[in-house]
């Protein structure tokens, strides 16, 4: 009951924050230099004063700011995020058609980063000064310091040109189109380089975090007890220690969802992956403000949902938290 109440409170809080994002979007458009009507008039090849006045009237630019905000809010509430003149499509459709590609990329990278990162961290924690441990430190420093788009380009150079075993752009083979299962394999093949690129940054952080936590956990009393009981080392680490090592990683995963999304924008640009990130890049080039602001809103929505899920997973791993709140 308590956790249901907690969930409800979180959802309400999230809705409040999203409302604030919409208001922010509205004010950003209004504070930005340049009048939308001037832009339209410019694209028409110049317009007379009467036409400009008519346009201002049509788009409600003569109304008070509060009135305009209300209009904007009521539109957003009905799912109307404006119209993209470049793509000639409502922004909402555009976002929903690009969302799946980004979700594939982000989720694959996240799984890669958490699994490999935790594994590396755990294994290296058993010998804190061993070779593998040093390697984890170096790799995590490199992964953290190299700009993600550059890592992507380097992998592209390596596996697209020097040792060409990977497709370098797009999500599927366009010339030789596959169907059924072969299509799935084709997409998976195209997914390898982008998802590895995106995963490297996060893998670097998780392996370091897992290593530090594992070293900490392994020196605690209950691990000594488990070992004293004669449990095999595999059970001690895999069952007893891992659970506690995972807690801080889950926290970080939740906090970094926004960064994962931002990383996806850069990676999608490098590999021409047809997701939201690519859409952001294109709408920046075309100065397509409605699309850009809608993506900002939806990414905030994604981050918020991810935070709520993280909190939920967190409680499942660590029953103490529930007891504390409840």
């Amino acid at each position: 009951m308590n956790s249901l109440l907690h969930l409800l409170r979180q959802v309400m809080n999230g809705i409040g924050l999203l409302f604030a994002v919409i208001v922010l979007n509205f004010f950003m458009i209004h504070l930005a230099p340049g009048d939308p009507v001037q832009v339209i008039a410019g694209e028409m090849g110049g317009a007379s004063a009467e036409v400009v006045a008519a346009l201002r009237e049509k788009y409600g630019l003569n109304d008070s700011l509060i009135h305009q905000l209300m209009t904007y809010l009521s539109k957003v509430a009905t799912g109307d995020f404006g119209y993209s003149y470049y793509y000639n499509e409502p922004v909402l459709n555009l976002i929903f058609s690009r969302l799946p590609a980004t979700v594939y990329l982000a989720v694959t990278s996240l799984i890669l980063a958490v699994v490999i990162g935790t594994l590396l961290g755990t294994v290296s924690a058993r010998r804190p000064n061993g070779l593998l441990s040093q390697l984890v430190t170096v790799v995590s420093l490199v992964g953290y310091s190299a700009p993600i788009f550059w890592t992507g380009l380097m992998l592209l150079l390596l596996f697209g040109s020097i040792w060409p075993i990977m497709p370098v752009s797009g999500m599927a083979n366009v010339v030789d189109q596959k169907a059924g299962f072969a299509y799935v394999i084709d997409v998976a093949h195209h997914l390898i380089l982008p998802s590895v690129t995106l995963a490297i940054v996060f893998m670097a952080q998780y392996s370091r975090l897992a290593r530090v936590n594992m070293i900490d956990v392994l020196s605690s009393d209950y691990i000594r007890t488990a070992r004293a009981k004669g449990l095999p080392e595999r059970t001690v680490i895999g069952k007893h220690a891992l659970r506690n090592t995972l807690i801080p990683i889950v926290t970080i995963v939740g906090l970094q969802f926004g960064n994962l999304f931002a990383g996806a924008i850069l990676v999608e640009t490098v590999f021409s992956w047809p997701g939201l990130g690519r859409l952001v890049f294109e709408s920046i080039l075309r100065r397509d403000y409605p699309t850009l602001l809608a993506v900002l809103f939806f990414s905030a929505l994604l981050v918020m949902v991810a935070n709520i899920i993280t909190d939920f997973v967190y409680r499942m791993i660590d029953p103490r938290i529930q007891a504390r709140v409840g």
Binding site: L17, V21, G258, N259, L292, V295, M304
Partner: peptide, 10 residues
């Protein structure tokens, strides 16, 4: 909740 890099781009 706003992805920092995306927010900066906007």
């Amino acid at each position: 909740i706003l992805p920092p890099l995306l927010f900066a781009m906007v």
